[in-house]
Design a protein around this nucleic acid. Structure first.
Lengths: 147, 147
DNA sequence: CTCGGTGCAAATGCTTTGCAATGTC
DNA sequence: GACATTGCAAAGCATTTGCACCGAG
């Protein structure tokens, strides 16, 4: 994960909108996210930052996550729970999720064919896609063996 | 939509689990849902029932929705907002959603090919699918014309 | 110096829970 | 009669908001 590249994207995005300002908090959130593997929620991101000694409030964490989502550096998902989950989107291919209902594990997968099919459907309906999320709920191989 | 068929499914489900009881509230919720076209949330379902003179509490509406989801009569989705959305699942094919970020419109579509591809991926990963949700966020044709 | 951003705490809104009353089996 | 279910109101939880203070441009 290229930290400088991500910073550059954020900087450009902030400048392109005359009203948005470049603050240390926004870059601190971005830096922390870049170190996280897999999914996370706003709360765990907040505590991770606090633990590392970064001074920030939860409100700013939420605010920054929205901003990072707008400039495409972060993806926001909503699985079964009532918590939003995020993950870094920088330099990663579009991917989808298999979610195990027993252990909560999330398996990612990529499938070009599926993405193409999706675009076809959108074309038929005159719909312009921006982002998409395919979530398959079920039982993973580990839990099948256990049960 | 076959009301009797739906009742039968619920009745069998309740009996198959020794502890679950058959209550008028549960059937009232099911009946109301059968009359609704498209998506709805717990709150609007509650007010719809109250308006029609059905005596029920919100807690019971939530409780019943969970139950109906378990026996496959109702699907639960979570789109962008922080509200869960439901729709009847009885007698309907598996379908997916195009969600317009501008007007909030939800366009449904069915695609066998896509479903088959999904199953293939699951097979490769040793994952047993139970249900799935594909959500494509973007702009619908109406909003494109406006904008 | 101006106005957007931050931080706190309080507010919001959906959903769940505790508990007494009720109704199913 | 036993115990699951209901209804109400209160509690929970993630997220948002109001407002005084701060700091980027």
């Amino acid at each position: 994960m290229d930290v400088e590249g991500a910073h550059e994207i954020l900087t450009k995005f902030l400048k392109s909108n005359g009203k948005l300002r470049s603050t240390p908090e926004r870059f601190a959130v971005l830096d922390t996210i870049l170190q996280i593997q897999g999914h996370f929620d706003a709360d765990s991101l907040y505590y991770r930052m606090i633990t590392k000694g970064v001074k920030i409030s939860k409100a700013t964490v939420y605010n920054s996550l929205d901003l990072l989502q707008e400039c495409g550096l972060v993806s926001k998902y909503r699985f079964a729970e009532n918590t939003s989950r995020y993950e870094k989107a920088f330099g990663r291919p579009q991917h989808h999720h298999l979610i195990c209902l027993e252990c909560g594990d999330i398996i990612e997968f990529v499938n070009d064919h599926l993405d193409r099919l999706q675009d076809e459907v959108c074309g038929e309906k005159g719909f312009t896609p921006q982002s998409s999320a395919l979530q398959v709920f079920g039982t993973c191989s580990k839990c099948k063996k256990k049960g």
